[in-house]
Computed example of a mutant assay.
Amino acid sequence: MLHCALIALGLSVSLVACGNHQSSAEAAVRDSLKDPESARFGEFYFNEKTGKGCLSVNAKNSMGGYTGDQQAYLRLKDSTWEVEGISEVSHESCRNTFADTTF
C-alpha cells in the first residue's frame, strides 16, 4: 500500500513540474504577442534532453483577427523560456524538426 502511495506521489510531482513548465512557457509566448490577452493555448511538449519545447497558440494579429493554431518554438535557458519563433506548422512537425533535435 505504501508503495502505491509513493508512486502516486511521484506521478503528481512530475505532473506539477510539467504544469510549471507549461505555464512559464505560456507567459513567455504572451510576452511576444501583439495581443497577449487574446492567447489561447493548446498542446505543450517539452524535451528535457534538448531543453526545447513546442506550444500551440492561437492569438489575435495586428488586424484583430485570430491567426489559427500556430506553434511557438521555445528554448529553456537558465530556467527561463525564450521564444525562438512562431510558425504555421503542425505540433508534430515542431516536435520532430525542432524540440527533438540536438543541434
Rank of each mutant, 00 (worst) to 15 (best):
M1Y: 09
L2H: 14
L2W: 13
C4R: 15
C4I: 12
A5D: 14
A5H: 11
L6M: 13
L6W: 11
I7W: 12
I7K: 14
A8T: 11
L9S: 13
S12H: 08
S12M: 10
S12G: 02
L15E: 12
V16Y: 10
C18W: 11
C18R: 15
C18F: 10
G19P: 02
G19C: 05
N20H: 08
N20Q: 12
N20L: 12
S23A: 11
S24W: 05
S24M: 11
A25E: 10
A25W: 10
E26T: 06
A27Y: 04
V29F: 08
V29W: 07
D31F: 08
S32F: 01
L33I: 00
L33H: 04
K34C: 00
D35Y: 08
D35S: 12
S38D: 03
S38H: 02
A39P: 03
R40V: 09
R40E: 13
F41N: 09
G42E: 09
E43F: 10
N47F: 07
N47R: 07
E48K: 13
E48F: 06
K49I: 10
K52Q: 10
G53F: 06
C54E: 04
L55N: 05
V57M: 10
N58P: 03
N58Q: 09
A59H: 04
A59V: 02
K60D: 01
K60G: 00
K60A: 02
N61C: 07
M63G: 00
M63T: 07
M63H: 09
G64A: 05
G65W: 10
D69M: 03
Q71A: 06
A72D: 00
L74P: 00
R75A: 12
R75Y: 10
L76T: 04
L76N: 08
L76I: 03
K77W: 06
K77Q: 15
D78V: 03
W81F: 15
W81P: 01
W81A: 01
W81S: 00
E82N: 03
V83T: 10
E84N: 15
E84A: 05
G85V: 00
G85T: 02
I86N: 02
I86H: 04
S87F: 07
V89D: 13
V89I: 14
V89W: 03
S90D: 07
S90H: 03
H91Q: 07
C94Q: 00
R95W: 06
R95I: 15
N96Y: 05
N96M: 05
N96P: 00
T97M: 06
A99H: 09
A99E: 08
D100M: 07
T102S: 14
F103P: 01
F103C: 09
